[in-house]
Design a binder for these strands. Structure first.
Lengths: 121, 121
DNA sequence: TTTTATACCTAAGAGAATTATGTATTACGC
DNA sequence: GCGTAATACATAATTCTCTTAGGTATAAAA
């Protein structure tokens, strides 16, 4: 069912809040389903946020005051828009910086070719 | 007790096997405690592998055939050395490539400054 | 009219780490 | 010579975050 060039799921762990907040920061108000679609599209299906992960995270972010909601009626359907708060903007900057730093560290670790001489391919 | 400029622990999740295999590949045989110290040193204390995470992972890697062990007696103490297997070398290349790809995708996502005009700092 | 896409949600379970222990040897400080 | 810190292994209980699976309902497309 999944046409996965997707990353193994452990990798993505810990990045969900960062991704959501970053999208909301640079993209303005979005609703849940839209977030999943946008991420999928921007990453060529490599990152697919499941709804079981998304909605609980959005609710948590709201409880923490990182995002705010407003509902909009589309026909008979209710759509819930999320907007990043000032607190959320602080958080997202911290998180993005931390992740960038982490990537540099990992790149350093994974690029190392040390002593041993045979430096196996 | 921890003098953490350390990364928030969720970030590191999913990268442990990759780090261990990569170190063993480029560094030759190493024992558990040595791995934790080397990683700590190479990352300026930013990544500190806990023993509760390390040992179960090493045992798993052995069970999966990614690494092999040999014990060495240092005085009265037993030291357990780990070496990467040919299978492990294939795995580590896949994992490193996947992680590098993942980092590029994340960098793309987190660097985006989209439409909205106000492009909040 | 039936299937697919949109749109929200929660609950049970899995997986990978943390935290807390436990054991024992060796080196260092005083 | 004696206590503390560092070395070195290990496991168990718990926590956290996500997956899998389920549920509801409207709108569009086939």
């Amino acid at each position: 069912m999944y046409f996965c060039a997707m990353y193994s799921s452990e990798l993505i762990k810990g990045t969900l809040k960062t991704i959501i907040l970053k999208l909301l920061k640079s993209n303005g108000k979005m609703y849940g389903y839209e977030i999943t679609q946008r991420v999928k599209e921007l990453t060529n299906n490599k990152i697919q946020i499941t709804e079981g992960a998304l909605y609980p995270t959005l609710h948590l972010l709201e409880k923490e005051g990182e995002v705010e909601t407003e509902t909009e009626n589309i026909g008979k359907r209710v759509r819930k828009y999320y907007t990043i708060t000032p607190k959320g903007k602080v958080t997202v900057n911290l998180k993005v910086n931390e992740f960038m730093d982490f990537m540099n560290t990992m790149k350093f670790l994974l690029d190392l070719e040390l002593d041993v001489g045979h430096a196996a391919k």
